[in-house]
Design a protein around this nucleic acid. Sequence first.
RNA 1: GGGCGGUUAGCUCAGUUGGUAGAGCGUCUCGUUUACACCGAGAAUGUCGGGGGUUCGAGCCCCUCACCGCCCACCA
Length: 863
Amino acid sequence: MTETLPALSSQYEPSATEAKWQTAWEDNHAFQADASKGGEPYCVVIPPPNVTGSLHMGHAFESALIDTLVRYHRMIGRNTLWLPGTDHASIAVQTILERQLKAEGKTRNDIGREAFLEKAWQWKAESGGTIVNQLRRLGVSVDWSRERFTMDEGLSKAVLEAFVRFYEEGLIYRGNYMVNWCPASQSAVSDLEVENKEVDGNLWHFRYPLTDGSGYVEVATTRPETMLGDTAVAVNPEDDRYKHLIGKTLKLPIMEREIPIIGDELVDPAFGTGCVKVTPAHDPNDFAMGQRHNLPFINILNKDGTLNENGGPFEGLDRFDARKEVIDWLQTEGALVKIEDYKHTVPYSDRGKVPVEPLISTQWFVKIEPIAQKTLAFLDEEQSPHFVPERWGKVYRDWLVNLKDWCISRQLWWGHQIPAWYAISETEGEIRDNTPFVVAKSEAEAWEKAIAQFGQQVKIQQDPDVLDTWFSSGLWPFSTLGWPEQTADLNFYYPTTTLVTGFDIIFFWVARMTLMASHFTGEIPFKDVYIHGLVRDENGKKMSKSADNGINPLILIEKYGTDALRYALIREVAGAGQDIRLEYNRATDESGSVEASRNFANKIWNASRFVMINLNGQTPAQLGAPSRDGLELADRWILEKFNRLVSQTRTSIDSYGLGEAAKGLYEFMWGDFCDWYIELVKLRLRQDDSPSRLAAQQTLAYVLEGTLKLLHPFMPHVTEEIWHTLTQASADEFLALQPYPEAAPVVQTSLDNDDPWNQAEPEEASAAAHSPAAAAVPKTETVLNLLSEPGQFVQFALQYKQVLLIGLGVVAAIIGFNVLDGVVSTLNAVPFVEPTLELFGLYYLGQFIYKNLLWSDRRQAFT
RNA sequence: GGGCGGUUAGCUCAGUUGGUAGAGCGUCUCGUUUACACCGAGAAUGUCGGGGGUUCGAGCCCCUCACCGCCCACCA
């Protein structure tokens, strides 16, 4: 053997290697993008993680997917930018901070806005730092020099620009409408932040007496307390039972208010009693009816969900306590007719985890319809964006079609404060629903506008509310590239290439981005949207904080390595964006699938070690590429297999089949290269200076280096480490920046075009071959298809093949290896025989028997 | 009330345009031959959810049923 064995231990140790390359990549700015270099751009913006603590397994999965795509495209020569960053997550962070304050017995009002925001920024610094470090541990190939945060200076400027432009175009308005009110966070929330839960409730039937004393009407409700705010009872105008009552009045119990009976088509005569109590201030349907019939809107609730002065005797009670009291009261009065069990849906606040109240309040809205039309036009006319898998495009479309206006104001402190300034009058001293205002990009500009509009005496005050988090994330793909400035990055990298994200934020985020972008940039901000599934826990449950079933990616990284975790996640991915389930043992922190991937990394490591031990210290470049003439059957076989692997891998990745590509690489590396090829060439490698040995060495080196490149996007660290030893590359040269292999046959095999067996079927073959599709099928396959038609032929051929194989193996062993070797040499000389595993089985079996059983004395001489 | 996914080996899941049912883990047998025991050689295990249809041939196409899961929706 050689004296210069590469110093590689027999086991791959991930932790040191990973840290080493992560640092080296970053220190050398390996992933820093440069628009001025031109070429074909490939750009991905990270779905910015919320600064709410730390990353979870879903982030690890998503980052692995993106990084694999990004590294691949960088290697195939695209001018690649992966832009990292984080999101301020207005309501989520504020909820956390308020919980902390509550633990100290304080509220946000106790410490004031300024101190609260200081705390928030401090939290952002800590959480953001944690997240960035975690991203590094995942080995992401992002451009850290372009890292952004949704509330940094540039992005805040973009938010102002967007808001002001929307406003000036009449697409943002302030108005008094019914919104979802979360009593826990004491803010409005958008429809999307409401989760409808089915609960076992009741349907209470009440009796309201007619004012003229001629009887009663019976109404049914699931929320009795709202009756305090009733201002009418509605019936269907076609309902023969009740239509004569329309126009009469009722006396509302408890409140003793006189309310009318109105006719409205919305009422379903078949449901309940056919009479509906109308509470315009506390139900979206009733709100609409209230508007149609000019009913009074009586708000009975405070912001915290307790009853206000309109709650009569129940003022001050919590809404659910008030419900009980109202029922008791009506029962005592004899107005409660019956209580039914009733299953219905109740809207819950996503963040606050309490039922939301439909409430009328003054909020800011984005008028969606005109914007959505543009966005829809892109989808319908240009199929943009293109969803993978396609079915999500339908989901996206359906949502865009049915959009209501977007409530963008939140009664919170952490976020982008709304850039509206109110002219406060001396007498009122505070912002009212109808206080006049100006919208401006800065306070100075607001002053100017206010003075021009309201005169010198004006006092102005900025709107205390902040914008919905998704307003700024909606601008993310272009604001991070410099918008509204026409920067070089924006010109070159925008629209971005691919967005990778989960189906759970298609509405929240993907659609908001396409809306914002189609309006402000006139383009859809990404060509493809790759939708991945959720990572579920070992029982198939969605991971969540409340269920406490999260799996910390760092634990698995420490145990098995980043490459192993990435690979385990990606190989589970099927084509269809299905959820994936991660094997995990909570008692031992072990994961079978990650362990299997760790073993694969180790297999790559040891195969590489074997190859390097047998190259006599030469690099693949020094050995030279395998040349056609010296190649033996086994070499040609593995080279052809490798060549096919290259095109399969590229095809799979190009169509987002990352799991498929990962599995193909695994099978080739472990099955073909290690189990077969390496075993086959062991004898040849011991022959001194023979052409046969050289061919084997060249082939080993060539295939190994190529496979490392193919694997690199999936397992960046282990491949980078091995590649440096194999090629003796300098420390600032990276596999990560090498060209990805291209399919380039180095040997002629049966798959070459000039092979007569590979020509398309000429004309009249069989009935089965007459379809247009069949005409393109190579002849070999057609023949196989024909043979299999009766069915039994295949069965027979298979059995025959095995018998043949075993028989020949025995014969080979008996007549001796040299004869067999002669046969193989003959086969080597014939260009159009495709090497098969079966043939190798024969060859290998012969070698094995020869080596171990028969001519042990000759074996001595040989080795 | 609409819509979408899923149901394949003990477990987790692949199965590309219909053409010999696969992988990983687990189980069993053998093996400590100098790349790797985080290994190697080999084995067992499937009425492909049920029923019907099309076809020479269906895990794959069509119909239908069942169960699991998800999304959307203003029925009080």
